[in-house]
Amino acid sequence: MTDPSESDYSKQTSWRRLAVFSVIFIAMTAAGLYAVYDQFAERSLTFDPRLIAPTTLLMVGLLLLVYFLSDGLRLYFTLRALGHRLPLKVMFRLVFINLFFSNVTPMATGGGFAQIWYLHRHGVPMGRATAATTIRTVLAVVFIFTLTPIFLLTLRALKDHTITGSIGVALAIFIFLYLAFFAVLLFRTHWLIAPLTQILVTLHRFHLISDARHRRWQFKARREMLRFSDSFGDYMKGQPVYVCLSILFTALFLLSLFSFPALLMYCLGYTIDYMVSLGLLVVTTFVMYFSPTPGASGISEGIFGSFFRDILSGNHLVLVTVSWRLLTIYLGMIIGLIVLQRELIKDRRKLE
Rank of each mutant, 00 (worst) to 15 (best):
M1D: 07
T2K: 12
S14P: 00
R17G: 02
A19Q: 06
V20N: 04
F21Q: 02
S22A: 10
A27D: 07
G32N: 05
L33F: 15
A35M: 08
Q39W: 13
R43N: 13
R50K: 15
P54C: 10
G61H: 09
L69Y: 14
D71G: 08
G72V: 06
T78H: 01
L79Q: 07
A81S: 13
A81R: 01
G83A: 06
V90Y: 03
M91G: 06
F92S: 10
F96H: 13
L99Y: 13
L99I: 08
F100S: 02
F100V: 02
S102E: 11
V104I: 13
A108K: 03
A114N: 09
L119F: 14
H120E: 15
G123P: 10
G123C: 08
M126A: 10
G127A: 09
A129E: 06
A129L: 04
T137F: 12
T146H: 00
T148F: 02
L152V: 02
T154P: 00
R156A: 06
R156T: 09
D160R: 05
H161M: 10
H161F: 05
H161S: 11
T162V: 14
T162I: 14
G168Q: 04
A170H: 07
F174E: 01
L177K: 00
F181M: 00
F181W: 01
F187K: 12
L192I: 00
A194S: 09
P195A: 01
L200R: 09
L203R: 07
R205G: 14
F206S: 08
I209L: 11
I209P: 05
A212G: 06
A212W: 04
R213L: 12
R216K: 14
Q218A: 07
R222N: 12
R223F: 13
E224W: 13
S229K: 05
S231N: 02
M236Y: 08
V241G: 04
V243Q: 09
C244N: 07
L245M: 14
S246P: 08
Y266D: 13
C267H: 14
Y270R: 11
Y270W: 11
D273R: 13
L278H: 07
V283P: 03
T284R: 13
T284K: 10
V287D: 02
F290S: 02
F290W: 05
T293P: 02
G295R: 00
A296V: 04
A296C: 04
I299M: 06
F304Y: 15
F307R: 03
D310E: 14
L312M: 15
L312E: 05
V320M: 12
T321I: 13
L326Y: 12
I334H: 04
V339T: 12
D347C: 06
L351T: 07
